[in-house]
């Protein structure tokens, strides 16, 4: 295991364009060893796309994605499907992208409480078992960077907390960087060093405390009286004061939310 000092991976004003539409644009982010970075945002806000850019799966159409060379990566994508025709046991799946020792497989499976599934076929696993095995596979090679796209799908609530504790423990044990994508805000906010709130662009970023205190975050996730409206429109070029009055445009400097850059009916 190596521990580079510089960021493991970073994005610099990176964006992906598909058919003239920007899925995500102007994303700056870095992830360092021993750091958990969470990407949050509504559906279609570009979380997975951002993760794929930093992983090198999607080359950015503008901006730069860079990674430490020979970075050992563990990746849990949002969806994977296994065809019936593919005979693949959990044990074989652990060796998918590289040779691993049996001891390491034992370790990864016991960390994720899936040791009893080692001889099972992948396609016979339940949703929760499948996610745990996906997680086991991502850590089995002792990665420098772990990227988890919705790792707790299909896992029940107590299991969820255990998974987040596991992610923290893995981070401490391997001193790896972690990029976490999740919908579960409360747990994310508790388990994270840095939060990046996306909605087609970076709305706000920083420590969980800082992000939670921003208007952009509240607009995206906490607007109690008119949540649907906030999710669909999300054009916080103004700020609601406690008395209900509206104050001026919130952060002018980046122009993310001003009408001059976002055309009408754009997703943000």
């Amino acid at each position: 295991m190596f521990i580079p000092k510089s960021p493991l991976a970073s994005l610099d004003a990176a964006g992906i364009n598909r058919g003239g539409r920007w899925l995500v644009r102007g994303v700056d982010m870095t992830v360092e060893s021993g750091e958990i970075v969470s990407l949050i945002g509504p559906n279609g806000s570009g979380k997975s796309t951002t993760a794929k850019m930093i992983l090198g799966i999607l080359p950015p159409d503008e901006g730069i994605a860079s990674r430490y060379s020979h970075l050992r990566v563990g990746y849990v994508p949002q969806t994977v499907s296994f065809d019936w025709s593919l005979p693949l046991t959990v044990d074989r799946f652990m060796k998918l992208t590289g040779r691993v020792s049996s001891t390491d497989i034992d370790w990864a499976l016991s960390e994720t409480v899936t040791s009893h599934l080692r001889r099972e076929e992948m396609r016979t696993l339940s949703g929760g078992e499948f996610q745990r095995v996906m997680l086991a596979r991502s850590i089995v090679r002792k990665p420098d960077l772990l990227v988890l796209d919705e790792p707790i799908q299909g896992i029940d609530f107590t299991g969820e907390i255990a998974i987040y504790e596991l992610i923290k423990r893995i981070r401490d044990e391997l001193h790896c960087g972690v990029i976490l994508i999740s919908h579960d805000l409360h747990v994310v906010m508790a388990a994270t060093d840095q939060v990046i709130c996306l909605n087609g662009h970076v709305c706000c970023s920083g420590t969980p405390d800082h992000v939670a205190s921003t208007a952009a975050y509240r607009e995206l996730f906490h607007t109690s009286e008119d949540q649907t409206h906030a999710l669909y429109k999300h054009r916080h070029d103004h700020r609601h004061l406690p008395d209900g009055s509206v104050t001026d445009y919130y952060h002018k400097s980046d122009q993310h939310h001003s009408d001059s850059v976002s055309p009408p009916n754009s997703p943000d």
């Binding site: 090198g56 563990g74 994508p77």
Partner: peptide, 15 residues
């Protein structure tokens, strides 16, 4: 084989 199971995992993990 890794690309057959999942191209994105294969690509992300350096294959």
């Amino acid at each position: 084989f890794a690309a057959t199971v999942d191209r994105e995992i294969a690509k992300a993990e350096g294959m």
